[in-house]
Amino acid sequence: MSTVADAFATRHGAAPTGVWFAPGRVNLIGEHTDYNDGFVLPFALPHRAVVAAAPATGGRSRVRSVQEPGAAVEFSAASVVPGEVPGWAAYVAGTCWAFREAGYPVGEVELELDSDVPVGAGLSSSAAVECAVGVALAGLAGADVDPTTLARIARRAENEFVGAPTGGMDQMASMHGRAGRLVFLDTRGDTVELVPFDLPAHDLELLVVDTRAPHAHASGEYGARRADCEAAAAALGVPALRDAGPDDLPRIADERIRRRARHIVTENARVVETVRLLSGGADPRAIGPLLDASHTSMRDDFEITVPHVDVAVEAARDGGATGARMTGGGFGGCVIALVEADGAAAVTASVREAFAQRGWAEPVVFPGTPSDGAGRLA
Protein backbone atom coordinates (compact mmCIF):
# COMPACT_ATOMS: atom_id res chain seq x y z
CA MET A 1 0.00 0.00 0.00
CA SER A 2 2.91 2.32 -0.67
CA THR A 3 0.61 3.83 -3.31
CA VAL A 4 -1.15 5.79 -0.58
CA ALA A 5 1.92 8.06 -0.36
CA ASP A 6 2.00 8.35 -4.14
CA ALA A 7 -1.70 9.20 -4.23
CA PHE A 8 -1.13 11.85 -1.58
CA ALA A 9 1.78 13.38 -3.54
CA THR A 10 -0.21 13.39 -6.78
CA ARG A 11 -3.22 15.02 -5.16
CA HIS A 12 -1.33 17.63 -3.14
CA GLY A 13 1.74 18.25 -5.27
CA ALA A 14 4.07 17.31 -2.41
CA ALA A 15 5.02 14.22 -0.45
CA PRO A 16 3.25 13.61 2.87
CA THR A 17 5.03 14.45 6.10
CA GLY A 18 4.87 10.76 6.96
CA VAL A 19 3.12 7.45 6.48
CA TRP A 20 1.80 5.56 9.50
CA PHE A 21 0.02 2.22 9.90
CA ALA A 22 -1.94 0.11 12.35
CA PRO A 23 -3.04 -3.50 11.93
CA GLY A 24 -6.28 -5.36 12.32
CA ARG A 25 -6.40 -8.18 14.82
CA VAL A 26 -7.56 -11.72 15.38
CA ASN A 27 -8.61 -12.79 18.84
CA LEU A 28 -7.28 -16.25 19.64
CA ILE A 29 -9.62 -16.61 22.61
CA GLY A 30 -11.56 -14.38 25.01
CA GLU A 31 -14.75 -13.06 23.43
CA HIS A 32 -16.86 -10.29 25.01
CA THR A 33 -14.72 -10.48 28.14
CA ASP A 34 -13.02 -7.13 27.53
CA TYR A 35 -15.92 -4.90 28.57
CA ASN A 36 -16.38 -7.15 31.62
CA ASP A 37 -12.93 -6.22 32.99
CA GLY A 38 -11.72 -9.64 31.91
CA PHE A 39 -8.93 -11.29 29.93
CA VAL A 40 -8.37 -11.48 26.19
CA LEU A 41 -5.67 -12.99 23.98
CA PRO A 42 -5.55 -11.37 20.53
CA PHE A 43 -2.71 -10.80 18.09
CA ALA A 44 -2.06 -8.22 15.40
CA LEU A 45 -2.49 -9.25 11.78
CA PRO A 46 -0.29 -8.32 8.81
CA HIS A 47 -3.39 -6.64 7.34
CA ARG A 48 -3.15 -2.89 7.93
CA ALA A 49 -4.73 0.50 7.65
CA VAL A 50 -2.19 2.98 6.26
CA VAL A 51 -2.39 6.76 6.53
CA ALA A 52 -0.35 9.29 4.59
CA ALA A 53 -0.61 12.61 6.40
CA ALA A 54 0.57 16.20 6.47
CA PRO A 55 -0.55 19.45 8.08
CA ALA A 56 -3.36 21.09 6.11
CA THR A 57 -2.67 24.39 4.39
CA GLY A 58 -6.25 25.61 4.83
CA GLY A 59 -8.50 25.94 7.83
CA ARG A 60 -10.15 22.53 7.49
CA SER A 61 -9.08 18.90 7.68
CA ARG A 62 -9.72 16.59 4.75
CA VAL A 63 -9.62 12.82 4.51
CA ARG A 64 -9.93 10.53 1.51
CA SER A 65 -10.14 6.75 1.49
CA VAL A 66 -9.15 4.41 -1.32
CA GLN A 67 -12.05 2.21 -0.22
CA GLU A 68 -14.56 5.09 -0.40
CA PRO A 69 -14.19 6.77 -3.79
CA GLY A 70 -15.61 10.22 -4.12
CA ALA A 71 -15.00 13.63 -2.69
CA ALA A 72 -12.94 14.18 0.43
CA VAL A 73 -14.75 14.45 3.75
CA GLU A 74 -14.02 17.77 5.43
CA PHE A 75 -14.21 18.70 9.10
CA SER A 76 -12.41 20.89 11.60
CA ALA A 77 -10.08 18.82 13.76
CA ALA A 78 -9.86 21.76 16.14
CA SER A 79 -13.58 21.88 16.87
CA VAL A 80 -15.30 18.70 15.62
CA VAL A 81 -17.67 17.07 18.12
CA PRO A 82 -19.66 13.82 18.17
CA GLY A 83 -22.56 13.83 15.73
CA GLU A 84 -20.91 16.12 13.18
CA VAL A 85 -19.29 13.55 10.88
CA PRO A 86 -21.23 10.43 9.84
CA GLY A 87 -20.21 7.25 8.06
CA TRP A 88 -16.70 5.88 7.59
CA ALA A 89 -15.06 9.27 8.19
CA ALA A 90 -16.44 9.31 11.75
CA TYR A 91 -13.63 6.93 12.78
CA VAL A 92 -11.09 9.50 11.53
CA ALA A 93 -12.79 12.62 12.84
CA GLY A 94 -13.55 10.84 16.11
CA THR A 95 -9.89 10.04 16.64
CA CYS A 96 -9.01 13.70 16.07
CA TRP A 97 -11.66 14.65 18.63
CA ALA A 98 -10.51 12.10 21.20
CA PHE A 99 -6.85 13.05 20.69
CA ARG A 100 -7.78 16.67 21.33
CA GLU A 101 -9.95 15.75 24.32
CA ALA A 102 -6.97 13.91 25.82
CA GLY A 103 -5.08 17.21 25.89
CA TYR A 104 -2.78 16.76 22.91
CA PRO A 105 -2.33 19.40 20.20
CA VAL A 106 -4.34 18.77 17.05
CA GLY A 107 -3.86 20.88 13.94
CA GLU A 108 -5.83 20.62 10.73
CA VAL A 109 -4.58 17.70 8.63
CA GLU A 110 -4.65 16.26 5.13
CA LEU A 111 -5.09 12.47 5.24
CA GLU A 112 -5.03 9.78 2.58
CA LEU A 113 -6.26 6.42 3.88
CA ASP A 114 -5.93 2.88 2.55
CA SER A 115 -6.61 -0.46 4.21
CA ASP A 116 -6.54 -4.16 3.41
CA VAL A 117 -8.23 -5.19 6.65
CA PRO A 118 -11.50 -6.86 5.56
CA VAL A 119 -14.49 -4.75 6.54
CA GLY A 120 -17.32 -6.43 8.43
CA ALA A 121 -15.28 -9.57 9.09
CA GLY A 122 -14.69 -9.10 12.82
CA LEU A 123 -11.00 -8.30 12.29
CA SER A 124 -11.17 -4.76 13.71
CA SER A 125 -10.96 -2.73 10.53
CA SER A 126 -12.30 0.27 12.45
CA ALA A 127 -9.72 0.02 15.24
CA ALA A 128 -6.98 -0.22 12.60
CA VAL A 129 -8.14 3.07 11.11
CA GLU A 130 -8.44 4.76 14.50
CA CYS A 131 -4.99 3.63 15.63
CA ALA A 132 -3.35 4.53 12.31
CA VAL A 133 -4.84 8.02 12.54
CA GLY A 134 -3.80 8.22 16.19
CA VAL A 135 -0.13 7.44 15.54
CA ALA A 136 -0.22 9.85 12.59
CA LEU A 137 -1.60 12.66 14.77
CA ALA A 138 1.04 11.98 17.42
CA GLY A 139 3.75 11.98 14.76
CA LEU A 140 2.58 15.22 13.19
CA ALA A 141 2.33 16.91 16.60
CA GLY A 142 5.71 15.60 17.75
CA ALA A 143 3.88 14.23 20.80
CA ASP A 144 5.33 11.31 22.75
CA VAL A 145 2.20 9.25 23.37
CA ASP A 146 2.61 5.71 24.68
CA PRO A 147 0.78 2.82 22.95
CA THR A 148 -1.72 2.22 25.75
CA THR A 149 -2.74 5.89 25.83
CA LEU A 150 -3.20 5.90 22.06
CA ALA A 151 -5.28 2.75 22.31
CA ARG A 152 -7.51 4.39 24.92
CA ILE A 153 -7.88 7.48 22.71
CA ALA A 154 -8.89 5.28 19.78
CA ARG A 155 -11.36 3.35 21.92
CA ARG A 156 -12.96 6.58 23.11
CA ALA A 157 -13.40 7.62 19.48
CA GLU A 158 -15.24 4.37 18.75
CA ASN A 159 -17.36 4.46 21.90
CA GLU A 160 -18.28 8.11 22.21
CA PHE A 161 -17.94 9.54 18.70
CA VAL A 162 -18.99 6.62 16.51
CA GLY A 163 -21.30 5.15 19.15
CA ALA A 164 -20.17 1.52 19.08
CA PRO A 165 -20.11 0.10 22.65
CA THR A 166 -16.99 -2.04 22.19
CA GLY A 167 -14.33 -2.88 24.75
CA GLY A 168 -10.68 -1.93 24.42
CA MET A 169 -9.21 -5.17 23.10
CA ASP A 170 -9.12 -4.20 19.44
CA GLN A 171 -7.16 -1.00 19.89
CA MET A 172 -4.77 -2.53 22.44
CA ALA A 173 -3.98 -5.41 20.09
CA SER A 174 -3.42 -3.00 17.22
CA MET A 175 -1.03 -0.89 19.28
CA HIS A 176 0.82 -3.61 21.23
CA GLY A 177 1.06 -6.45 18.70
CA ARG A 178 4.43 -8.07 18.03
CA ALA A 179 5.55 -10.62 15.46
CA GLY A 180 5.35 -14.16 16.84
CA ARG A 181 3.52 -13.05 19.99
CA LEU A 182 0.02 -12.98 21.41
CA VAL A 183 -1.14 -9.96 23.40
CA PHE A 184 -2.42 -11.16 26.78
CA LEU A 185 -4.46 -8.23 28.00
CA ASP A 186 -5.96 -7.78 31.45
CA THR A 187 -8.58 -5.18 30.60
CA ARG A 188 -9.13 -4.07 34.19
CA GLY A 189 -5.81 -2.25 34.27
CA ASP A 190 -4.87 -2.43 30.57
CA THR A 191 -1.78 -4.43 31.47
CA VAL A 192 -0.13 -6.36 28.65
CA GLU A 193 1.99 -9.50 28.60
CA LEU A 194 3.37 -10.86 25.33
CA VAL A 195 2.94 -14.63 25.01
CA PRO A 196 4.97 -16.76 22.56
CA PHE A 197 3.01 -18.29 19.69
CA ASP A 198 5.47 -19.98 17.35
CA LEU A 199 3.24 -22.32 15.38
CA PRO A 200 5.73 -23.12 12.58
CA ALA A 201 8.08 -24.62 15.17
CA HIS A 202 5.34 -27.18 15.89
CA ASP A 203 4.33 -27.70 12.23
CA LEU A 204 1.06 -25.91 12.90
CA GLU A 205 -0.83 -23.08 11.27
CA LEU A 206 -3.75 -20.88 12.31
CA LEU A 207 -6.24 -20.39 9.51
CA VAL A 208 -8.60 -17.41 9.43
CA VAL A 209 -11.84 -18.10 7.58
CA ASP A 210 -13.75 -14.99 6.55
CA THR A 211 -17.25 -16.40 6.19
CA ARG A 212 -18.37 -13.21 4.43
CA ALA A 213 -21.42 -13.12 6.65
CA PRO A 214 -21.37 -9.43 7.55
CA HIS A 215 -22.07 -8.13 11.01
CA ALA A 216 -22.60 -4.74 12.63
CA HIS A 217 -21.42 -4.08 16.19
CA ALA A 218 -23.22 -0.75 16.42
CA SER A 219 -26.54 -2.58 15.99
CA GLY A 220 -28.61 -3.62 18.96
CA GLU A 221 -27.33 -7.15 19.52
CA TYR A 222 -23.85 -6.22 20.74
CA GLY A 223 -25.28 -3.59 23.06
CA ALA A 224 -27.87 -6.06 24.31
CA ARG A 225 -25.18 -8.54 25.31
CA ARG A 226 -23.33 -5.82 27.15
CA ALA A 227 -26.51 -4.84 28.98
CA ASP A 228 -27.09 -8.48 29.94
CA CYS A 229 -23.60 -8.68 31.41
CA GLU A 230 -24.17 -5.52 33.41
CA ALA A 231 -27.44 -6.99 34.70
CA ALA A 232 -25.61 -10.17 35.72
CA ALA A 233 -22.95 -8.23 37.62
CA ALA A 234 -25.65 -6.21 39.37
CA ALA A 235 -27.51 -9.40 40.33
CA LEU A 236 -24.32 -10.78 41.88
CA GLY A 237 -23.34 -7.50 43.53
CA VAL A 238 -19.90 -7.40 41.87
CA PRO A 239 -18.25 -4.54 39.96
CA ALA A 240 -17.92 -6.67 36.82
CA LEU A 241 -18.23 -10.30 35.80
CA ARG A 242 -14.45 -10.51 36.08
CA ASP A 243 -15.13 -10.78 39.80
CA ALA A 244 -17.55 -13.71 39.53
CA GLY A 245 -16.83 -17.45 39.61
CA PRO A 246 -18.77 -20.58 38.59
CA ASP A 247 -20.15 -21.03 42.11
CA ASP A 248 -21.81 -17.60 41.91
CA LEU A 249 -23.89 -18.34 38.82
CA PRO A 250 -26.81 -20.14 40.54
CA ARG A 251 -27.58 -16.89 42.35
CA ILE A 252 -28.69 -15.28 39.08
CA ALA A 253 -32.43 -15.92 38.86
CA ASP A 254 -32.98 -14.99 35.23
CA GLU A 255 -32.02 -17.95 33.02
CA ARG A 256 -30.88 -15.89 30.03
CA ILE A 257 -28.78 -13.55 32.17
CA ARG A 258 -27.27 -16.57 33.94
CA ARG A 259 -26.20 -18.08 30.60
CA ARG A 260 -24.65 -14.81 29.51
CA ALA A 261 -22.67 -14.67 32.75
CA ARG A 262 -21.63 -18.31 32.42
CA HIS A 263 -20.04 -17.57 29.06
CA ILE A 264 -18.00 -14.69 30.50
CA VAL A 265 -16.90 -16.58 33.60
CA THR A 266 -15.86 -19.70 31.70
CA GLU A 267 -14.29 -17.72 28.84
CA ASN A 268 -12.06 -15.84 31.26
CA ALA A 269 -10.93 -19.18 32.66
CA ARG A 270 -10.21 -20.46 29.15
CA VAL A 271 -8.03 -17.44 28.37
CA VAL A 272 -6.01 -17.89 31.56
CA GLU A 273 -5.55 -21.60 30.86
CA THR A 274 -4.46 -20.91 27.26
CA VAL A 275 -1.85 -18.45 28.50
CA ARG A 276 -0.66 -20.92 31.12
CA LEU A 277 -0.17 -23.63 28.53
CA LEU A 278 1.55 -21.48 25.93
CA SER A 279 3.75 -19.59 28.40
CA GLY A 280 4.80 -22.91 29.91
CA GLY A 281 6.03 -24.24 26.61
CA ALA A 282 3.20 -26.70 25.98
CA ASP A 283 2.53 -28.03 22.50
CA PRO A 284 0.00 -25.55 21.06
CA ARG A 285 -2.22 -28.48 20.10
CA ALA A 286 -3.17 -28.55 23.78
CA ILE A 287 -5.28 -25.43 23.33
CA GLY A 288 -7.52 -27.07 20.71
CA PRO A 289 -10.18 -28.20 23.22
CA LEU A 290 -10.26 -24.70 24.71
CA LEU A 291 -10.97 -23.20 21.28
CA ASP A 292 -13.76 -25.72 20.75
CA ALA A 293 -15.28 -25.05 24.17
CA SER A 294 -15.17 -21.30 23.53
CA HIS A 295 -17.22 -21.68 20.37
CA THR A 296 -19.79 -23.89 22.08
CA SER A 297 -20.15 -21.28 24.82
CA MET A 298 -20.58 -18.45 22.32
CA ARG A 299 -23.16 -20.47 20.41
CA ASP A 300 -25.23 -21.80 23.30
CA ASP A 301 -24.77 -19.42 26.24
CA PHE A 302 -23.99 -16.07 24.61
CA GLU A 303 -25.94 -16.74 21.39
CA ILE A 304 -23.76 -14.65 19.09
CA THR A 305 -23.00 -17.13 16.32
CA VAL A 306 -24.84 -17.45 13.00
CA PRO A 307 -25.22 -20.43 10.63
CA HIS A 308 -22.25 -19.41 8.47
CA VAL A 309 -19.80 -19.46 11.38
CA ASP A 310 -21.25 -22.61 12.96
CA VAL A 311 -20.96 -24.46 9.66
CA ALA A 312 -17.41 -23.18 9.14
CA VAL A 313 -16.37 -24.40 12.60
CA GLU A 314 -17.88 -27.84 12.13
CA ALA A 315 -16.43 -28.20 8.63
CA ALA A 316 -12.98 -27.16 9.86
CA ARG A 317 -13.11 -29.82 12.56
CA ASP A 318 -14.37 -32.41 10.06
CA GLY A 319 -11.43 -31.48 7.82
CA GLY A 320 -8.93 -32.20 10.58
CA ALA A 321 -8.61 -28.98 12.60
CA THR A 322 -7.28 -29.44 16.14
CA GLY A 323 -9.66 -26.74 17.36
CA ALA A 324 -11.88 -24.06 15.85
CA ARG A 325 -14.02 -21.20 17.01
CA MET A 326 -15.65 -18.01 15.90
CA THR A 327 -13.52 -14.94 16.51
CA GLY A 328 -14.70 -11.37 16.97
CA GLY A 329 -17.87 -9.83 18.32
CA GLY A 330 -20.19 -12.25 16.59
CA PHE A 331 -23.29 -12.21 14.36
CA GLY A 332 -21.10 -12.95 11.35
CA GLY A 333 -17.44 -12.47 10.59
CA CYS A 334 -14.56 -14.91 10.90
CA VAL A 335 -13.64 -18.32 12.25
CA ILE A 336 -10.16 -19.45 13.28
CA ALA A 337 -8.90 -23.01 13.02
CA LEU A 338 -5.73 -24.48 14.49
CA VAL A 339 -4.47 -26.96 11.89
CA GLU A 340 -1.51 -29.13 11.03
CA ALA A 341 0.63 -27.26 8.50
CA ASP A 342 0.32 -30.10 6.00
CA GLY A 343 -3.42 -30.29 6.61
CA ALA A 344 -4.32 -26.67 5.91
CA ALA A 345 -5.44 -27.43 2.36
CA ALA A 346 -7.76 -30.21 3.55
CA VAL A 347 -9.37 -27.98 6.18
CA THR A 348 -9.80 -25.19 3.63
CA ALA A 349 -11.38 -27.59 1.14
CA SER A 350 -13.75 -28.94 3.80
CA VAL A 351 -15.03 -25.47 4.68
CA ARG A 352 -15.42 -24.41 1.05
CA GLU A 353 -17.30 -27.59 0.20
CA ALA A 354 -19.67 -27.11 3.13
CA PHE A 355 -20.44 -23.58 1.93
CA ALA A 356 -20.87 -24.69 -1.68
CA GLN A 357 -23.36 -27.36 -0.62
CA ARG A 358 -25.51 -24.63 0.95
CA GLY A 359 -25.22 -22.24 -1.98
CA TRP A 360 -23.26 -19.71 0.06
CA ALA A 361 -20.52 -17.47 -1.32
CA GLU A 362 -17.07 -19.01 -1.11
CA PRO A 363 -15.29 -18.04 2.13
CA VAL A 364 -11.91 -16.33 2.06
CA VAL A 365 -9.24 -18.32 3.90
CA PHE A 366 -5.79 -17.04 4.85
CA PRO A 367 -3.13 -17.78 7.49
CA GLY A 368 -3.27 -15.72 10.68
CA THR A 369 0.27 -14.63 11.44
CA PRO A 370 1.07 -12.60 14.59
CA SER A 371 2.57 -9.32 13.37
CA ASP A 372 3.85 -5.99 14.63
CA GLY A 373 1.59 -3.31 16.00
CA ALA A 374 1.14 0.29 14.90
CA GLY A 375 4.04 2.45 13.86
CA ARG A 376 5.57 4.66 11.19
CA LEU A 377 6.37 3.36 7.72
CA ALA A 378 8.02 6.42 6.19
Rank of each mutant, 00 (worst) to 15 (best):
T3D: 13
A5L: 00
D6K: 12
A7T: 14
H12L: 10
P16I: 09
V19H: 06
P23H: 05
G30R: 00
D37I: 12
G38I: 09
V40I: 07
R48I: 09
V50I: 15
P55D: 11
P55Q: 12
T57H: 09
T57W: 01
G58Y: 01
G58P: 02
G59M: 05
F75D: 08
V81R: 15
Y91L: 02
A98S: 15
F99N: 04
V106G: 12
L111R: 10
E112L: 07
D116H: 11
D116C: 08
V119G: 06
G122E: 04
A127T: 13
V129F: 02
V129E: 01
V135C: 10
P147M: 00
R152F: 03
A154I: 07
R156D: 02
E160K: 07
T166I: 11
M172E: 00
L185Y: 08
V192G: 06
L194S: 12
L199H: 07
L206V: 07
D210A: 03
H217Q: 14
E221F: 01
R225K: 13
R226C: 09
R226Y: 08
D228K: 07
D228M: 06
C229Q: 05
G237P: 07
R242Y: 01
R242T: 08
A244W: 02
I252P: 11
E255W: 01
R256Q: 11
R259Q: 10
R260W: 01
R262N: 06
H263E: 00
N268W: 06
N268R: 14
A269R: 14
R270T: 11
V271D: 03
V271P: 09
L277Q: 13
L278H: 10
R285C: 11
G288K: 11
D292F: 00
A293M: 00
E303Y: 00
T305Q: 00
V309S: 11
D310P: 12
A312Y: 07
A315L: 03
A316S: 15
T322H: 15
A324Y: 01
A324C: 05
E340A: 15
D342A: 15
V347S: 10
T348P: 08
R352V: 13
E353W: 06
A354F: 07
W360D: 04
P363L: 03
F366L: 06
D372P: 06
D372F: 05
G373Q: 04
L377R: 13
L377D: 05
